[in-house]
């Protein structure tokens, strides 16, 4: 059996429609929940700091940089491809900053320390492939 008759016989329409609706609903709910997570995070942060300093305003939210060198390599590797075989670190820095990457200084430093960015002399660097 082929064509529309086959789809109908194998319950295809219901599977496709229900499947699409479920995944759309599921991810929409997840998006809604995570859009509110910062409020919950703020609440937890406030409760944690409240007993210690009841009369002082809560401190600015502390963020701890997530430093995963593999992740940094993936992200910066994509940008390094755009810059060609050799480039100045300032170009990489500006590109990363404009892309909204967090902790650009620290990231570039760790890439240098791990030998991912190879100095070529005269202020030029290349990406270790």
């Amino acid at each position: 059996m082929y064509g529309i008759a086959a789809i109908t016989a194998k319950n295809g329409w219901a599977m496709a429609l229900a499947g699409a609706l479920i995944v759309m609903t599921g991810l929409s709910v997840l998006a809604l929940v995570i859009s509110q997570l910062h409020k919950l995070a703020q609440l937890i942060e406030n409760r944690r700091t409240a007993p210690a300093q009841p009369d002082t305003p809560p401190p600015a939210e502390k963020t701890i940089p997530s430093f995963n060198i593999e992740e940094i390599k993936t992200r910066y590797g994509l940008m390094a491809q755009q810059l060609g075989d050799s480039f100045e670190l300032t170009r990489l820095y500006h590109l990363a900053r404009d892309s909204g990457f967090p902790h650009v200084h620290l990231s570039i430093r760790s890439l240098r320390e791990t030998g991912q960015l190879v100095p070529l002399g005269d202020g030029m660097f290349s990406w270790q492939k």
């Binding site: 295809g12 496709a16 859009s35």
Partner: peptide, 29 residues
């Protein structure tokens, strides 16, 4: 930017369209 999650959901529509196409070509469910 949680709203971007909806784009991840929308891109899954290719799965269900292909499901229908495969059924139409005679594959089992």
């Amino acid at each position: 930017m949680p709203r971007l999650m909806l784009l991840g959901a929308a891109a899954q529509m290719g799965i269900y369209t292909t499901l229908l196409s495969a059924l139409a070509l005679g594959f089992t469910a």
